[in-house]
Design a protein around this nucleic acid. Structure first.
Lengths: 138, 138
DNA sequence: TTGAAGTGTAACGAACACAATTACAGTTCC
DNA sequence: GGAACTGTAATTGTGTTCGTTACACTTCAA
């Protein structure tokens, strides 16, 4: 199964960006089409990253803690701790092969570059831009 | 578990780049520290992409079909059909929510941009460059 | 001060992805 | 004809992810 936490998180935050008041986990779950507990688990990470504020108790729920223009998708990406874009082979090297002995280090560099490219891309997109797309689409 | 096919493939091709003759799947498996069948499955994809040539029968094996300087990591990436960098939520939208209704399209755009960023990065790296790194490292 | 309506979080299960492994048919060379 | 390879199907074990149930805790309002 593919990890969808990032997609779910962006969806949640965009929904919150449009909401005037707080939304509870059931409402968010309905929008994403999943279970409220899945949402609450995600919100933990978003809260740790100070992207949202949640309130317990009756009339509890969640709201954005910043303006949509101040939340980049990179912040969301970091908040959900996405798995690496390129996985490297962690098993031990075959000592008699120089390729094998150096592969981990070399692939680490390649993976870091790929990660960086993705991060640069996400850094340039804010929730506000996604809101505009939603509005334009009707 | 994370998909390591790309890393395995780069490792295999780099080993082949250093080999003067063909290498068989057992040798490659030893270098990667896995099973020969795993290697042969990967070689299928690399062969389809015309990055290697394999020979069956006694004294069979595999060799590169191009010079290391002519093989970019992007070609390898495409050959192994890596999973998407960012997975999008495929389940059906909640029709009464405009965010939900537009999320798939919006995330598709974000994911495509991320994919593109990774591809641009990989396009700039060739096997020859990796060989140089191995040589420098000793 | 009690009940309703939320969140926080642990525990478990089902579905899936991936790699490892076994097995064997086919190919090639000697 | 046998040895040494590749090609490929089938099965298994392990880890990941999400869904679900369960329940303690918090808050508000009557």
């Amino acid at each position: 199964m593919v990890n969808q936490q990032f997609t779910f998180a962006v969806h949640i935050l965009t929904a919150l960006a449009f909401a005037e008041e707080t939304m509870d986990s059931q409402e968010l779950a309905t929008s994403v089409n999943t279970n409220p507990v899945v949402i609450r688990r995600l919100l933990l990470g978003l809260r740790r990253a100070r992207l949202v504020e949640t309130y317990t108790g009756k009339h509890g729920g969640t709201k954005l803690s910043k303006k949509p223009g101040e939340i980049s998708l990179l912040a969301v990406y970091d908040a959900v701790q996405a798995r690496p874009v390129i996985a490297i082979n962690e098993r031990k090297a075959f000592k008699h092969c120089r390729v094998s002995c150096n592969m981990r280090e070399i692939m680490s560099g390649v993976a870091a570059g790929a990660e960086d490219a993705v991060r640069k891309h996400l850094r340039g997109i804010t929730l506000q831009q996604l809101m505009r797309k939603v509005r334009r689409a009707g």
